[in-house]
Design a binder for these strands. Sequence first.
DNA 1: CCTTGATTTAGAGTTAGCTCTAAGGTGTAT
DNA 2: ATACACCTTAGAGCTAACTCTAAATCAAGG
Lengths: 136, 136
Amino acid sequence: MRRQTMTIQEVAEKTGISAYTIRFYEKSGILPRIQRTQGGIRQFTEADVTFLLFLIELKRTGMSLEEIAEFTEDGCLLERLQQGDIPQQPVERRITILRKHEQRLYEQRHQLDYLLDAVTQKIHFYEQCLEDRQND
Amino acid sequence: MRRQTMTIQEVAEKTGISAYTIRFYEKSGILPRIQRTQGGIRQFTEADVTFLLFLIELKRTGMSLEEIAEFTEDGCLLERLQQGDIPQQPVERRITILRKHEQRLYEQRHQLDYLLDAVTQKIHFYEQCLEDRQND
DNA sequence: CCTTGATTTAGAGTTAGCTCTAAGGTGTAT
DNA sequence: ATACACCTTAGAGCTAACTCTAAATCAAGG
């Protein structure tokens, strides 16, 4: 039976995020406290990695680490939720943060489409310049 | 007849970018050298502002200031291009940089759609939790 | 049990990108 | 012509987000 958990190095390789950064994320509350061996070594589950990758996407799309830490507060709600314990405040807080970010994402998509168009046009423009030059 | 140019404060108000930052952008080559009065005061044209806003969008979508400065090098090509002078190297460099960024933009749009979906689903999930709680 | 190599911590250092300060010059309305 | 708001510069300071160092601890093989 193979090991169910990963060391920080394995997570680093799997996600492309350095071990330094992962530790930094745990220290600053971006990641919830990760389970340890009795010796103190972190044991990442698949769920931890999935959560980390989700947070990275939030960050990449403009959520600050501070706001991500606010989202992560109360750590892994999933367990409690599955056990039927539904803590109202933390759940509401997460909904609020995600709704706010959802709005940002819609805005970003809009601006992205707009810029993509502008960039494509500019490329055509410069290419046209070079072609004109050929025809001397 | 009204003035054709703007001071740095006016540009700051118009764009939402602080005067400090605009000076910093000129100093670090993100903006080309702006025309001055004989007294040394910057006179921004509409074209300067348009260019600045375009650069801001490049930045917002992940282009580093270093790369933007590389794009801006050789300043305003538009005048020379309109005069029929087509400097090959600078034009090719701009095409290369823009093509690279175009790829990033496509990738971003893809990931954005994916994340938007994930976020929307998570919101529904948490909302469902609260509803379940109501029905006790 | 001892070596080897990865892991732990606290805390210092780095980088990008601003943001501001100080000292002085500009320009326009009275 | 002088007051006043706004402009200029060089360069220092700041914040977010890492990135690394040092010294100690842990874990697995021989």
